[in-house]
């Protein structure tokens, strides 16, 4: 064998041990949670045999049903709105000549990634309280609006990446072949950026589905989403029912994020 040409971290002492410990800390709790969701007993720490009972209980729990439906409604609207806005933002920041303040625009679009969620939550609470008082409206609109706002950067990043990888000469060719700017966009640019848009929407959906902090501040009475309902339950008795809901949420998220990676891997 020839001498190693470059630094290889796998040869460093303790590499294997550190890697194993990291995976253990990351996944052991999740695996435990999933296992105990099938516990026949009342405990989340004492195994009493396999059973689907907590899944059945969760399915028949009216509060959980309501929270789940609410979560899906908010996530659907928020991800669609965020994706539309993010698509427009991506077009506006890549399909134009470089302009002054472009970096500032990037920073503003990605603001939710930088501002602590708790700060946004408090700020929205104050603003929405005023609006609620003035209008009397207290529906899901506030949650949808708030979720749309923090989902935008998650939708924006994959869409922009896709657009930047797109060969500009294709749009030139469309214009050369008698396509008006709108038709060139409809027939060439939009279909080619579609994988980015779908990926962005999926990411936004998962992020919205998962949110606790901002939802907790913004929701009105009786507007629990699945995560805030779970949080509320944990303050009282903890039963494997929580494990069951968590497991379902986990699988939905993993499925969507996997689909996101598969879509993103498709070359431009």
């Amino acid at each position: 064998m020839s001498e190693r040409a470059s630094f290889d971290i796998r040869r460093m002492p303790g590499f294997v041990a550190i890697a194993l410990a990291t995976f253990l800390v990351l996944y052991a709790p999740i695996v435990t949670l999933v296992i105990y969701s099938f516990n026949a007993g009342m405990s989340v720490a004492l195994w009493e045999g396999f059973s689907w009972r907590w899944y059945e209980a969760a399915m028949h729990n009216q509060q959980i049903q309501d929270a789940a439906v609410r979560s899906v409604i908010v996530a659907s609207f928020a991800s669609v709105f965020a994706t539309v806005l993010a698509t427009m933002a991506a077009l506006g920041t890549t399909r134009v000549r470089p302009f002054r303040g472009q970096t500032t625009i990037y920073a503003l679009i990605n603001q939710p990634l930088m501002v602590p969620e708790i700060v946004t939550g408090v700020a929205l609470l104050i603003v929405f309280a005023t609006v609620k008082q003035a209008t009397g409206y207290s529906g899901l609109g506030y949650l949808i609006l708030a979720h749309t706002a923090f989902c935008i950067p998650f939708a924006y990043l994959p869409i922009r990446a896709r657009l930047e990888g797109l060969d500009r000469s294709l749009e030139t060719a469309a214009a050369d072949l008698y396509a008006t700017p709108w038709r060139a966009f409809r027939r060439v640019t939009l279909p080619l950026m579609m994988p980015g848009i779908v990926a962005g929407a999926m990411l936004a959906f998962v992020i919205s589905l998962d949110d606790v902090v901002i939802t907790e501040f913004v929701k009105s009475a009786g507007q629990d989403t699945l995560p805030t309902y779970m949080l509320g339950q944990l303050r009282r008795a903890v039963t494997p029912e929580i494990n069951a809901i968590s497991t379902v949420l986990l699988f939905i998220s993993v499925a969507i994020v996997s689909a996101f990676f598969v879509l993103n891997r498709k070359k431009a």
Partner: peptide, 27 residues
């Protein structure tokens, strides 16, 4: 460009990757 009865063969060809050969030609 779309108002001129002039067409271009590009150095990079710039074929539409989401269309078939026939769809490209008919565009």
């Amino acid at each position: 460009p779309f108002q001129r009865p002039v067409n271009t063969v590009f150095q990079s060809y710039a074929l539409f990757p989401h269309m078939t050969v026939a769809q490209n030609i008919g565009f």
